[in-house]
Design a protein around this nucleic acid. Structure first.
Lengths: 195, 195
DNA sequence: CCACGCATGTAATAGGTTACATGATTTA
DNA sequence: TAAATCATGTAACCTATTACATGCGTGG
């Protein structure tokens, strides 16, 4: 199960369920999503299996926290997963499916609106990743050779996301142009002369 | 549920569960994956809800086929989904998570092997999409304006996949170079002079 | 005192995978 | 006659989402 292994990977430092959820939300973990209601039972199950251990620590603000750390067995499990080769086939793009069937609406205007909204959402996400990248990038140094092993791998992951999202946003723009051209060829041609 | 709506979208022509599975596997439906064992019960459930109707037809080869077609209610449901705006947040990239935690192995050589394998898998998939694109592309015509509404939308979807995968493969190459540079800076620098 | 952020969880339901079970027809 | 392709499904299990329920501490 991927989530279990991802949590093991994130637990290179002790953390509570709440901490882990925060990490998922902050965009650093752009490759996966999980809700608290899934994280809590998963952590409990992993502890029962002996991959984690936990202790309750009182918190400055709010109720006491259950802090997890991974065991030797947990780390062993993580390494196995890492060595098992790239796990593919979990990709699912509902929005692409929607686009492909959009012709059923029989109205290109709605395809256009859809693509405008999609572009905006993808661009927002891209910005998030670029911020994460900026945090890793120290100014005026030999880069990325200067990074630690941990940050170097994080950097590779973030860059993959940035490349893919940049390409998607660019394609949204091209698609928008094609749709507008299809709607009214003349208008777009004169707009193109201005640009 | 996305799968239900996707099946509704695919059922613009009558088809059996087996037919639909074939369509998923052939790469034209690169945005989603589903197994037969999920498709059959889903179709049954949708028929009970009145979104589909079915009849058994004998087949030339093999046992008789249950052929589904969508009802007016089914089409209504599809249109609602299409009008609900882009469905985001279902993306999950297990392989990116693996890459980010790869430092735990403490051996860049394994990161390298991982990226080589990943690149090869992504490139294979890209080829599949390019073939699908070629099937839509008639030679020497006004393109894509000449396409039907259905094919135009399919074309947009395929192009999105091609753009994103091309970017990912390119990033694999850049990542491989960075990893090699980190392993042995001198070797790569002399190789770069040759190129 | 109320809203907000911190912090934990459960229950019900929905969605998805793997393994199993069956059987016809065609091609090598 | 054995393997491949066509064709349908069930059962057990695992994974994920949504809604609900609880309660502390701080700042306005």
């Amino acid at each position: 199960m991927s989530l279990e292994n991802i949590l093991l990977g994130m637990l290179d430092k002790p953390a509570s369920g709440y901490d882990l959820k925060t990490e998922f939300s902050e965009g650093a973990r752009h490759f996966w999503a999980a809700e608290l209601s899934q994280i809590y039972p998963t952590l409990k199950r992993m502890e029962q299996r002996g991959w984690l251990c936990s202790e309750v620590a009182s918190s400055a603000k709010g109720p006491p926290r259950r802090v997890y750390r991974r065991t030797a067995d947990g780390r062993k499990q993580l390494l196995e997963w890492l060595r098992s080769g790239p796990r593919m086939g979990t990709e699912r793009f509902a929005y692409l499916a929607q686009l492909c069937f959009m012709h059923e609406l029989g109205d290109l205007e709605q395809t256009l609106d859809f693509m405008i909204e999609l572009r905006s959402r993808l661009a927002d996400f891209l910005l998030l990743l670029k911020n994460a990248e900026a945090e890793l990038t120290p100014a005026g140094e030999e880069f990325p050779e200067s990074l630690s092993e941990v940050d170097f791998h994080g950097y590779l992951g973030i860059r993959m996301g940035i490349h893919s999202l940049t390409a998607k946003v660019a394609w949204c723009d091209e698609a928008l142009e094609r749709i507008r051209k299809r709607q009214s060829p003349q208008v777009v041609r004169s707009a193109a002369r201005k640009a």
